[in-house]
Design a protein around this nucleic acid. Structure first.
Lengths: 193, 193
DNA sequence: ATTAAGTGCTACATTGAAGTGACAGTTAAA
DNA sequence: TTTAACTGTCACTTCAATGTAGCACTTAAT
């Protein structure tokens, strides 16, 4: 793992593409930080096939790299919400589409936002997304899709866990199939009818 | 937070009880490490009202402290399983009792075991508990409590998440009430019947 | 061919946490 | 009262990770 790179190895991979390197650092960083929040810049850089120094050329500090990763996830979630049309589409349709979208987001950006809530801008954007989903759940209750005798916040707390769990437990499923499992579990549970 | 302790402050709290200090370090450590796996020994000691040096007198290293905490959780889970009589009691009864017990365990020892699976002894004990619960789920399917068209490992992966979630989301519930919510969600989901 | 952008590599300073040692003071038990 | 068990405090050492500097090299664009 910490083996010294052969001098000739780098030739050919150098400057493959600056943009590709940037993306590799971000996605690899997201994956490694999700597995171990204390992962070092050096280990992330190595895993991304990039020198540690290169990371510091793009990001002023570790904090900056984390911010960029969280930003990427935040944006992806916002896109997922918008695409699902949570306010207009039929609740059953919107739910499935939202779940499928976020499952995809979780595969590329599995990082946990909760550790980044110190930043006010991040918190505000995150709260906006949360409110959007909460409003959708209210509509789902109103239209009879969800029970109304649920503890406050229970549904909106459970769903993210299910979406995270399905990626960890059933990674071989397509996002669509994974969404089937999540929605079925959310609505019907695992008990016999 | 890092304020210098007043000389007179320690008088009266010193040597209240060695055993109490030990327990405080363990439970406080469990709580803080669950919130932030990178929490320093110094911060844990401070939160537990104990000097950093005292921690090192009980535990040879940080690794040792973690091992003690994981050991405590492991033991508590094993007790929870035994108390629930997963092999003999009626499935519905055993499930509820197991859930209620583990919810209690999670409140005192919320640490995530998955980061400690390097140790072979820990892994073996943990696997034994997991197998016990898996066997129970098979029995539950056989007796018609759970559906049989579920993805492999889905139920046994979902239940721990639910038990963890209910503690984070509904901490004001008693363990019994929390177990009601978890079991109901597991079996029936959140959709209208 | 020349220039600009980007990268790898070696080396260095800084910082925070881990871990140890030694000493003084307190409390409970003898 | 004396002793043994703990604890707090100050003072280190060690180490890993962060963050910087400078140089040589490669590639794409002009």
């Amino acid at each position: 793992m910490n083996q010294v790179a052969h001098p000739a190895t780098r030739i050919g991979t150098v400057r493959a593409d600056a943009a590709r390197n940037l993306e590799a650092v971000l996605t690899t960083g997201a994956r490694m930080l999700a597995a171990d929040p204390g992962a070092s810049i050096a280990s992330i850089a190595a895993e991304a096939g990039v020198d540690r120094r290169t990371v510091y050329r793009r990001f002023a500090s570790r904090e900056d790299l984390l911010a960029a990763i969280y930003e990427a996830r935040l944006k992806a979630v916002e896109d997922a919400i918008e695409d699902a049309r949570l306010r207009e589409a039929p609740v059953a349709v919107a739910l499935h589409r939202y779940v499928e979208n976020v499952i995809g987001v979780n595969r590329t950006w599995p990082v946990d936002l909760s550790r980044m809530l110190a930043d006010d801008t991040v918190r505000a954007r995150r709260d906006t997304s949360v409110r959007e989903v909460d409003a959708f759940f209210e509509r789902a209750v109103g239209e009879g899709l969800l029970r109304q005798d649920l503890p406050k916040g229970w549904a909106s707390a459970l769903l993210p866990q299910l979406m995270h769990l399905v990626n960890r437990q059933l990674p071989e499923l397509t996002p669509g199939q994974a969404a089937d499992v999540v929605v079925d579990t959310l609505l019907n549970g695992l008990g016999t009818p």
